[in-house]
Amino acid sequence: MGWDALPLVEAADERPLIERRALMRDGFYEMQAKTVIERVPQTAGIAQRWAISPYRGCAHACRGCGARAGHLRLGLDAGRDFDTRIVVRPNTVARLRAELARFCGEPVAVGVGGDCYQPAEETYRLMPGVIDALAEAAVPVTVYTKGPLILRDAPLLAAAGAQVAISIAFVDERIRRGVEPGALNGRARLELVSALAEAGVDCRVLMAPVLPLLSDAADQLDATVRRIAAAGASGVEAIVLRLPPGTRQWYLAWLAEAHPHLLERYEELYDDAGLPSPTYEGRITGQIAQLSRMYGLRYGPAAPSRHEPRYPQLALV
């Protein structure tokens, strides 16, 4: 059963924008996307400039997720609503195919606004169509996820030459329970890396976000990189925690409760845009780069894989 939340006289309705314009079905908000290839925020820290997000919000409930502000534009909060009120864009594949016809062909990230293999994907199955459309257009793609459902699409990803970046910022289960309560534990994610590599998928690890004063000690970084190498990842890229608007308030509220003695140091480390001190960030990423070389891993963004369109365009003359 679904209900149409679009009122006849919207101006008199004080409900959040998403409740006025979306269709509620099976616990998810369905909203038709006007465009699906969107610019990646500069604060994200990833290599790609363009992203596709079939879902907004994320059931993994990671406190440091940089995509939280997107919910504010829908009239929802960037905290609990982001974790529990997932917005689905059911026309993602149709819109993507239309936009790819005039897209520049630059590398694309999938899953920036919300994990593309979170539980909602079990219901909507949007990712096979996304992968197929990008493969047909020969657009280099990196899928960012920490969801085990990606194994379902491993054959499609391998055939498409897609890259996968599994997020594993630390292997300390105590930290994971505090900041990633809805996500797989680190051991299970390392097993996911191994399974994808065995299936022929180019699988790397995104060590993100590295949490200042919580997961950045030398022994913690060493243990994480060592286990990533043992899992068979093709490389490592690291991003220190970003705290853009929305994320900042939610993360610091948790920090004030769980680790109040760290609040002052965080205020010193971060600028108004939510970016960490360049000196601190350079030191941490430098350590991870050195550890990667020591354990035989390639460090940094992977070169985008390029291939011919599955169905080449016919010449007019």
Rank of each mutant, 00 (worst) to 15 (best):
V108S: 06
V88D: 06
G75W: 08
P107E: 02
R89L: 11
V108C: 08
I86M: 06
V112A: 11
C104H: 11
R80V: 12
F103V: 05
R89N: 11
L74I: 06
G70I: 11
L76E: 07
L74A: 10
V88Y: 07
H71N: 14
R68A: 05
L72K: 12
R95V: 12
A94S: 14
V108Q: 08
D83H: 06
D83N: 13
V88S: 05
A109R: 05
E99S: 04
V87L: 07
R97Q: 09
R85G: 03
R102F: 09
C104F: 06
R89Y: 13
V110I: 09
V112I: 15
T84W: 11
I86N: 05
G114A: 05
C104W: 09
R89E: 11
V108Y: 01
V87A: 07
A69T: 12
G114Q: 02
D77V: 09
T92V: 15
P107A: 00
A98N: 09
P90S: 08
P107Q: 02
V93A: 13
G114T: 00
V93R: 15
V87N: 02
G70L: 13
L76M: 10
R68Y: 04
E106F: 05
E99F: 00
A94C: 10
A98M: 12
V87T: 08
P90V: 08
E106A: 10
P90M: 10
A98Q: 15
A94G: 07
R102S: 14
G113M: 12
A101L: 12
V108F: 08
P90T: 06
R97H: 07
G105C: 01
D81M: 03
R95A: 11
V87F: 09
R80G: 08
R95C: 09
R85N: 03
G70H: 14
G79S: 06
D81F: 05
V93T: 15
R97I: 04
A69F: 13
E106K: 08
V110L: 04
R97Y: 07
P90G: 06
A94V: 13
E106W: 04
L100C: 03
D83C: 09
T84G: 11
R73F: 12
D115I: 01
P107S: 01
G79N: 06
V110A: 02
L72T: 11
P90I: 07
L96G: 05
R73H: 14
D77K: 06
V87I: 13
F82Y: 09
R80A: 14
G70M: 14
E106Y: 01
H71F: 10
D83P: 00
R97P: 04
